[in-house]
Design a protein around this nucleic acid. Sequence first.
DNA 1: CAGGACAGACCAACCAGTCGGTTTAAGCCT
DNA 2: AGGCTTAAACCGACTGGTTGGTCTGTCCTG
Lengths: 192, 192
Amino acid sequence: MFERYGFHGVSVNQIVNECGTSKGGFYHHFASKDELLFVIHDYFISYALTKAQEAIDSNQLPTEKMQKIITSFLKVFDLYKPHISVFYQESIYLKPQYVKAIKEKRQSYKQIIFAVIKEGIQTGEFRPELPVEITGMSILGMVNWSYKWYKKDGDKSIEEIADIYVDLILNSLLTDQAKQEWRFKDYFLKNN
Amino acid sequence: MFERYGFHGVSVNQIVNECGTSKGGFYHHFASKDELLFVIHDYFISYALTKAQEAIDSNQLPTEKMQKIITSFLKVFDLYKPHISVFYQESIYLKPQYVKAIKEKRQSYKQIIFAVIKEGIQTGEFRPELPVEITGMSILGMVNWSYKWYKKDGDKSIEEIADIYVDLILNSLLTDQAKQEWRFKDYFLKNN
DNA sequence: CAGGACAGACCAACCAGTCGGTTTAAGCCT
DNA sequence: AGGCTTAAACCGACTGGTTGGTCTGTCCTG
């Protein structure tokens, strides 16, 4: 077996070749390959966190907050697909300091989602029998996974996908009573 | 910077050391590291596929089929968590022949889920306004992602998590009419 | 002419895979 | 039962090649 296929993610040599630069240039700007990966991750996670924070800081109903979070979450995949793909290929064996920093930001995002679900249950919009953590993780998983299949030139735009996800999620979360309220009707897909 | 942390997944040396065997022994049983990874993946994906196939071959309502698929899907994470973890760390740069074989099995699984959703829409159990592919991918993502956080000794058992996921998914899928039918009541969480 | 930006040869570490040799154990003959 | 044969199981030093990172030096700009 002689064939090799480029084993372990993207090497620094590949990066500098495709950028038309050099090893020296690269290490002049980044302390290590780990740092580059961290910066790439920070770029898109910061966008997601900012948008989610904006949503929960607003004076809106939990349903509306959830809609805004899901929509901006999916938007991240549209804006930063390349960043995210690099990161998911490489992320496993970063130095502990970088892993820590990344985990903290992801933890914050998770907590925002949990907080909205809790608030929605308190206001009576969301079903009280739902366990906050598992429900939150299911939402995170459902949306996060879409980076694996979403294509910019696919059948559906990111906004259309977001509308579908919001419909699916709110159908799971809202109480029967809340679903019948007029103010929420715009969040559901039209029954053709 | 001298420190190294074992960069790219698990090396063959690490594997044979921890197994108390040797390079020679390893390559006596496997043609390549790729083949080992393929065998590991095939082990758990075959279980999932078999269970899902059993579900759709049964003479049951789409709702019941979906419940069986989700439950067995989650069970895979309980049974094969180590296999799955190894695979997700390593999978990116397999030789094309292995990638092809793996993608085919994953494609089959996807098609089974799509088929159940289609059938459910045809029988009137599931909401006709839902797009089959996106809905299917959202279910796949939601369940698949749980390998990242599920712990055997966590708060909730895999069966409890499955019950919650089935509730969430069926609340998204079922029509208002179907939800009120007596025969589906057991699939929903109790309203305490 | 000073200092940041960049180039690329170079290095030690590490990787998947090889190969000649050794151990183990089962089958067979007497 | 005990020796003989044979092949599979297993070992680990070794190889060719790639990796992340370093270092010396050059270029460019103020």
